[in-house]
């Protein structure tokens, strides 16, 4: 029987953003992004679920210490994005449209480089209770 288990940690952050392309005119941004392009920003309570998959360590019984994973998410994600304006305050989204899709890919990248290569990583991000994304798909 395989010893591979997935462990999950849930965190949250609250942020403002808007969806738009600066190289499009207002009419195009409005047509494509609708209300999400409004110029004074709007916001979300983002809920992040981080899934790490690997073998159970025979000494600790852990795939990964979930306290360490929580600290890592706090340090790499929450401290960057919580109570921020994603478009204005973060270098990750200075040139990248902060759609849920792009945010999930960015978060995955930030965590991936801090985790052992023997662990698989997947990120699920809820922008609202009804809209969420996963990466990798």
């Amino acid at each position: 029987m395989s010893n591979r288990v997935s462990v999950f940690r849930k965190e949250h952050f609250n942020a403002a953003h808007r969806l738009y392309r600066p190289d499009w005119d207002d009419a195009t941004n409005d047509r494509v992004f609708g209300k999400c392009a409004l110029p004074n920003f709007h916001g979300h309570n983002y809920e992040l679920i981080v899934k790490v998959t690997g073998e159970i360590d025979p000494e600790t019984g852990y795939v990964i210490d979930l306290k360490l994973l929580s600290d890592l998410i706090q340090q790499e994600v929450i401290e960057r994005f919580d109570h921020r304006n994603l478009n204005l305050d973060t270098k990750e989204f200075a040139q990248l449209n902060p759609t849920a899709e792009n945010i999930a890919v960015v978060i995955h990248g930030l965590l991936r480089k801090q985790l052992s290569e023997s662990l698989e990583l997947q990120v699920r991000l809820y922008e609202t209770p009804r809209n969420f994304v996963e990466y990798p798909a």
Partner: peptide, 12 residues
């Protein structure tokens, strides 16, 4: 604290 960020934050 963080809630006074001049560039706003947001909620559902």
């Amino acid at each position: 604290g963080k809630c006074s960020n001049a560039n706003w934050h947001g909620h559902n």
